[in-house]
Amino acid sequence: MIEIEHLSKVFQDKNGRVVALEDVSTTIRDGDIFGIIGMSGAGKSTLLRCLCLLETPTEGRILLDGKDLSALRGEELRAARRRMGVVFQGYNLLMQKTVAENVAFPLKLDKYDKAAVAARVTELLELVGLADKAQSYPSQLSGGQKQRVALARALASNPGVLLCDEPTSALDPLTTQSVLELLQSINKKLGVTIVIITHELSVVQRICNRMVVIDESHFVEQGDTAAIFENPQSSIARLLLGKKEG
């Protein structure tokens, strides 16, 4: 379970202060497929970066199973990071390594057994349907295939949480569909909690059971997806949904 408690993130640059997130709080339960939706610049990416510890919160805390993530350092921090898998919009694969080597990357960061790693890689590639592409290089794959590799890599160390930053924004509708189906099956089969950042309403509607709406660094609405879609309270949610229906 992930608890976000009064999280704020302020950036200081030469032009002054930029408030990316202000006093946001929510709870993500185990097994949720949790959607975070908002317009560009609302603070979605910052939230994800705080969750996977690329940024430290200016105020507030993030608790993973009761442990305060922002207080972790060094080895503990690295261990916590390995309990979370991250999938990026730009895939962020190593272009000079094969698909299999990419998926194995997180597994080789600690002491490892060669055979065990090889077996795990095969298992993961089968899960995402890319077993025959193990020796291919990312430049030989389509966008959807690259995203699957990124997914396999994110799942390699058996994380309890999968964080996805705009996982389908760069993909065509058909490929989006298959990636979303894959996410759903992973959630069901492996029980992995999934947090999805997106600006696409259809994604949230299709697979997220719970959601939060961000507008200008605030959580303006949160709860069960179905409930919000039926009865949006905030103006931005209404705007988003109105846009969709219109």
């Binding site: 510890l53 690329l54 690295r78």
Partner: peptide, 9 residues
């Protein structure tokens, strides 16, 4: 960043 997220030193 992806490598950092994966816990690489």
């Amino acid at each position: 960043e992806a490598a950092r997220c994966m816990g690489a030193t």
